[in-house]
Design a protein around this nucleic acid. Structure first.
Lengths: 170, 170
DNA sequence: ATATTATTTCAAAAAGTTCTGAAAGTTCAA
DNA sequence: TTGAACTTTCAGAACTTTTTGAAATAATAT
């Protein structure tokens, strides 16, 4: 398979994958394109290679910068902005965890905490509801601390811990 | 806060949360509703409580059954089908992991494996691309084994491992 | 200052997804 | 069988999200 063909397939499938995880398909494609481009690309490159409009390219590049996955760069003697994606897969993963945690897990935890405290416990029904909130809440908390530790750790250490986890007998 | 009010809030926010993770908002709401209903509900209950059509209720209840999160039940002397959600949060989590792994992670791994083998390595550019595929691939593989182990373990054991992970100095 | 080039914005259009409700299908008791 | 009770289907409608592209804004060179 030719390189260009392979890149195209990767970009397209990464887009599909993203869309199943609540990420705009185009944003995921732009990210994939930058991931497999050793050189930085400018807006026109992205527009051309993905066949999307200027507005769309601009919007999704900015979203990627917002997510901390892409940086603007400049080339000497050129006025255009270029875009470069972090290539280290572990760093990318950590960044995604960090952002989703902040944007989604934390609001969820706040909601659960509120609900578990605010409901009047005055009937078996209420108690059951509260119990569910407490369970979900401790679950979300556990996920939170685990993810926080991952975000702060380096790849080797996490892989090592994973190995121990796998070898340990359950 | 009254119980009904709290339930409504939970159902609505769980729906929002779901939609950020690529789950149909209504499906997440139906799941939430069943999670906080100690009794099984029938299609009409769901339609009424969420104010949705019969078709929509039917479709999302079936999807939940498909995901292994909800079971059909019957009440003695009644012809109607009732629906009951698994309440054990750990079991629910495992089921979701299991299904997403099967539906999404495995296709992704296949794609990466193909791409890393099929591309002609004949230039520095191709080598770089292949390197990225290899990295993503081993990453996906690591996630796969870790999740597989989780799916097969019980809550206590996973929480215990998590504790060790958190206490270990990085 | 002005022209030139690059970037951002945003209203309207397109595309994609979800929902409705009536009709068709199924099940089962009589 | 028949028909009442319930479930499923699906075409079109409603809604949501994404995309476009032209205009506004910004940045830089001359």
């Amino acid at each position: 398979m030719k390189l260009d063909e392979a890149k195209k397939q990767f970009v397209s499938e990464w887009g599909t994958f993203g869309s199943k995880w609540g990420v705009n398909r185009t944003m995921a494609s732009v990210h994939a394109l930058l991931l497999v481009s050793s050189e930085s690309l400018c807006a026109d490159d992205v527009m051309e290679q993905l066949d999307i409009s200027r507005g769309n390219a601009n919007m999704n590049l900015r979203a990627l910068i917002d997510w901390g996955l892409v940086r603007k760069t400049h080339k000497a003697g050129e006025r255009k902005e270029y875009f470069y994606a972090e290539k280290d897969v572990w760093k990318v993963t950590r960044q995604v965890i960090k952002e989703r945690k902040r944007r989604e897990l934390e609001p969820l935890r706040n909601m659960l905490t509120e609900l578990k405290h605010d409901v009047d416990v005055e009937s078996p029904e209420s108690e059951e509801f509260q119990k569910m909130m407490v369970e979900l809440s401790s679950f979300a908390d556990a996920a939170d601390v685990a993810l926080e530790k991952m975000v702060k750790s380096d790849q080797k250490w996490v892989f090592n811990s994973l190995m121990k986890f796998l070898k340990a007998s359950s």
